[in-house]
Each structure stands twice: as structure tokens, then as C-alpha cells.
Design a protein around this nucleic acid. Structure first.
Lengths: 202, 202
DNA sequence: ACCTGAACACCGTTCAAGT
DNA sequence: ACCTGAACACCGTTCAAGT
């Protein structure tokens, strides 16, 4: 049973990214091994080096790739023009928490320390600085302000406050801190009220 | 130049914890290697196994040990009875952010995924559930409520909101997300106002 | 009781060699 | 252009042996 060819005809790079992402989600980052990847794709463990300069390089690309999948979850919600600004804000937050709970291993590496290296090695992000989702959040806040609904001194700072709160809840949840796992629904509701209360024109 | 004895007379365990913590803070978790630890302490790299069942076990103890140092930063602030509740809340938050910025590598492992294993393998934390600092925060909120300053429906949930926001700011800062590094002072001020605004009796 | 040295199975990476 | 197999230096862990 010898294979006629060991070539992947140019799609090995994409398969590597897909498989690595898959292993991260199901078994966590430590389970991603060049040996395991090679076995899954039917190549030796050194085949990787044709497509990535190192394992680090591969993982950085996975993070970049994973972010796209992450961002995709939110754009439909931001675009629900039939919903009010407040409703969209609520739904985006819910989606954010749900994603992190459903994909803890992926979420951890997307927002982990390795991200800094990704940004440094990629000019697009480095220049743009803000992610698509962060930008959309700012735009939503500005939309609320222009409708005389919100009172915001600095939309970027306000978006950072909201993002910090969401990231904090998600991280503490998935890593098992402060009993948050048992109280996430109420925590989200109180968090949302606190944020909205700080935004609304009185 | 042969040593008269390779014995550490019972303090090797403590030295291992100290050195591991030191390496984590200065070089990060990946730099903690049994070989490096052995070299620093003048033992072979297998000497560790007299005192810990595995490297994992050692790291869990480092996390436990590190949390004590972390918590110590806050108790003096919580106990400043000459300061108002709001002032103490402000200072605790500042201290929290400052610590995480000053000790990013340590902060990351204290609140990382490994913590769950520490809690599971340690009945004290598992039963108590809440850390000392979290408890002190809840008590501070209740003190504000009893003074008719704050209006709080559930002190635990409210403490979780505050903790999530602080953890989110700290994490996003040290891992280089959303431009927070360039805006941390304003971000903290706006965050604090938002939280206080949600707490104060109107 | 405490530590060592050799051995084991793994890891990422390099490189000459094969098609 | 793309992949392999052997080799290298590392890693955590086990274990018989030394004091």
C-alpha cells in the first residue's frame, strides 16, 4: 500500500493551518506537535518547514487565521440595522461570551501573549492597530452618540472599557476564577446595565 | 574544588519555589527548566523529584506561593480606615493594574489556565472558593452599602463585575491588545467612574 | 533521607539526499 | 519545488545506585 505521491499539490499550507486550529480547539495548544501534524496530514514532521519558517511562525499564522473566524461572528450582529444600538450592544456581548465559552482553547491563544508577536510581524494589523470588531464597536458607540442616546467623551476609551469588561469575564470564566462559572448570566446582566447606565444621556 | 556536601539540609524545596518564581518574573514561564533550576541551586536536574512529584506540581506550588505575594499588596489598602470607601476602591484598582504591569509574566500564570489545577488539588481554595482579595473587595462593597453610599443588589456579582474589568484591563495591557498600553491612565479613570456611577445611591 | 548519572521517549530544528 | 530520514541538542521523567 504505497502512495503514488507524497505531494499535497500546494494545499499543504492551508491544511496545516486547519489541522493546527482544530487540534488547538479540541485538545489545546500543547497538543500541537509537528509529529502529530505530520501524522494527520500523512507527511513527515519536517515537511512543515517548506511552508513555515518555524513552529512559532505556523502558530502565529493560526492566530491570524483564527481571528478572522472570530471576527466573522460579530459583523452580522453589528449590521442588524433593525435593532437599536443598545440591543446590538447587548447581542454582541452575549456572542462574545458564548464564543469564548464554546472555544476556550482558541480564545486563550487569540488573546494570549503570542498575539504581540503576530502584530509585530504583520504590518497590516500593526498599522491599523484596532481589530475589525473593535472598530465596529467604536462605530456603534458613535452611532449612539449621534442619535443623542449616549454621552461619550472618548469613543475609543469607552470601547476599551467595554472590551476590557468582556475580556475579563470571558477569561475569568474559562480559567475558573472567582466562581464566575456559576454566575455568568447574572454577571453579564449586571455588567451590561452598568455599562449602559454610564453611556446613556441623563 | 569538590563540595563537601551536596545536601541542602531541608531548604531545597523553598529555594526551588523561590528560584522558579524568580525565573518566571524575569524570563517567563518557558524559561523554567529542570536543568536551569538544578544549575542555579547546584544540584542535578532530578533532585527536584525528592520534593515535588513533577514539574507541574512544582509550578502549581509556585502559583499558590505567588498568590500570597499578590494578595499581600492589597490588604494594607483595604485596611486604610482613614480613607473613604470610594478612595480605597480607587487605590486597590490602581495597585492591581500597577502590579500586573510590573509583573506581567507572574500575573499571566497566576490567572492562567493552570490555576484550575491548583484549585482542584488544594481543598482550602476549593472550599473557600474566593481569594482573600476578592473577599476583601466584597466586604468593602458591603461597607459602602451599609453606609447608605452604595446601592447593591448582589455584592458578589458586583465584585465580579469590578474584578472582570480590572482583569480585562490588566490582561489586554500586558498582552498588547487594543492600544490599551498607550491609554491606560484614561482607561482606568473612565472605568472607575463607570463603576462608581453604577454603585452610588442617586 | 537525599542526591546522582545513565537511560528513555519525546520535542523542535537542520541538512544532505531523494523525486 | 516539495518531501524524507538521519542527526542534533534539548526536554521531563524513571530508576538503580551511591552517601
Amino acid at each position: 500500500m504505497k502512495k503514488t505521491s507524497n505531494y499535497h499539490h500546494g494545499n499543504l499550507k492551508e491544511e496545516l493551518l486547519n489541522q493546527a486550529l482544530n487540534i488547538i480547539q479540541t485538545q489545546g495548544i500543547d497538543a500541537v506537535t509537528l509529529q502529530v501534524l505530520g501524522n494527520k496530514l500523512g507527511t513527515s514532521r519536517t515537511a512543515i518547514y517548506r511552508h513555515f519558517s518555524s513552529k512559532q511562525d505556523l502558530l502565529q499564522n493560526v492566530i491570524f487565521f483564527g481571528f478572522e473566524k472570530f471576527e466573522e461572528k460579530f459583523s452580522p450582529i453589528f449590521q442588524m440595522k433593525e435593532k437599536t444600538v443598545v440591543e446590538r450592544l447587548y447581542l454582541v456581548g452575549i456572542e462574545y461570551i458564548n464564543f469564548s465559552i464554546a472555544n476556550p482553547n482558541l480564545y486563550r491563544i487569540l488573546f494570549g501573549e503570542k498575539f504581540q508577536e503576530v502584530r509585530e510581524s504583520n504590518c497590516d494589523i500593526s498599522e491599523e492597530e484596532n481589530s475589525e470588531g473593535f472598530h465596529a464597536l467604536m462605530k456603534l458607540l458613535i452611532e449612539g452618540e449621534e442619535a443623542k442616546l449616549f454621552n461619550i467623551s472618548n469613543p475609543m476609551t469607552q470601547a476599551q472599557v467595554i472590551f476590557s469588561l468582556c475580556h475579563g469575564m470571558a477569561s475569568l470564566y474559562i480559567d475558573g476564577h472567582m466562581n464566575i462559572k456559576d454566575n455568568i448570566k447574572e454577571l453579564y446582566e449586571v455588567s451590561f446595565k452598568t455599562i449602559i447606565n454610564g453611556l446613556l444621556v441623563k
